[in-house]
Write a protein that binds this DNA or RNA. Structure first.
Lengths: 149, 149
DNA sequence: AGAATTATGGTACCTAAATACCTATTTGTC
DNA sequence: GACAAATAGGTATTTAGGTACCATAATTCT
């Protein structure tokens, strides 16, 4: 999960992919099953899903036949809600200097980074799990073609 | 330097602010002077500037009256060059699954984050230190006013 | 009733990255 | 020669994220 400026933790990646899988399958799945499909540590995935449950995005049940499933229709869950459930709400603070002392306006670096952050939030808030599942259906055939990065 | 998706290290913040200060003053300054103005650790600032020197963005001289100064006109140094000098060139990899196996097209999460990264790079590449110094002159009077992020 | 399966919750450990610290060495000025 | 500054390298320290482990609770199956 390294690279670029935009950093997401493995936990967030597990959450996004896991929730996406639940939306795709549309049925209850066990953490073991999910983590295997994602090649992720089962214990880590378990922790991640605990937070999703607490956030009310996922319902869980125990015992054999137990597992997790979406608590709401896929069209009602945005990617940003998933992100926030894992990372918590966060506010930025990029200026080294005290805000009032920064010689670069009301810190130009800070506002630049805030803008990019806002763009991320806006995009994540506009996408739901249903959009994902839809895009999968439309794009799944041409995956191999544009897979060169 | 925590918060938001867009994460920059303190090293990058030191580099951006330090270079900005050099552009503003337009003269040679010592690391001690710069680090004090930024309320940053002098040793850390020294390391950061070593990298900027190696990248050819800064000229340095030793001894009393020594210090660092821009190696090029401020209008020829982009913020992205500064960022890259500290963090190195980086490529992203956000998909948990093997790219070919990701059930979400050519991973939709990955492409989303790549787009945001590209946006950052584009913006940082379009801004030079001269633009910064200019914005300071225009905005410096109204800093206190819009300082409620 | 008891065994198996699954989620829950807590704690402690591991690792990697960023930062801080410390001690020299080199280069230049006076 | 004395001093000031960058340079260099090595070694903590800190922190966040991830991992591992363990006991427990809930549910299902036999």
């Amino acid at each position: 999960m390294k690279g670029g400026v935009v950093q997401i933790s493995q936990a967030v990646s597990i959450a996004l992919h896991g929730m996406g899988l639940l939306a795709l399958r549309g049925r209850k799945m066990s953490i073991g099953e999910l983590s295997e499909m994602m090649s992720a540590s089962e214990t880590h995935a378990a922790k991640v899903f605990q937070r999703l449950v607490k956030a009310g995005l996922v319902n869980s049940s125990r015992g054999p036949t137990g597992g997790v499933e979406l608590a709401l229709p896929a069209s009602k869950i945005t990617l940003f809600e998933i992100y926030e459930a894992i990372e918590g709400s966060s506010q930025s603070d990029y200026c080294l200097l005290q805000q009032d002392n920064c010689p670069f306006g009301s810190c130009i670096f800070g506002s630049m980074l805030k803008n990019i952050n806002n763009e991320f939030v806006r995009y994540m808030s506009s996408m739901t799990l249903a959009d994902l599942a839809g895009s999968e259906i439309n794009e799944t055939k041409s995956v191999a073609a544009d897979n060169k990065n």
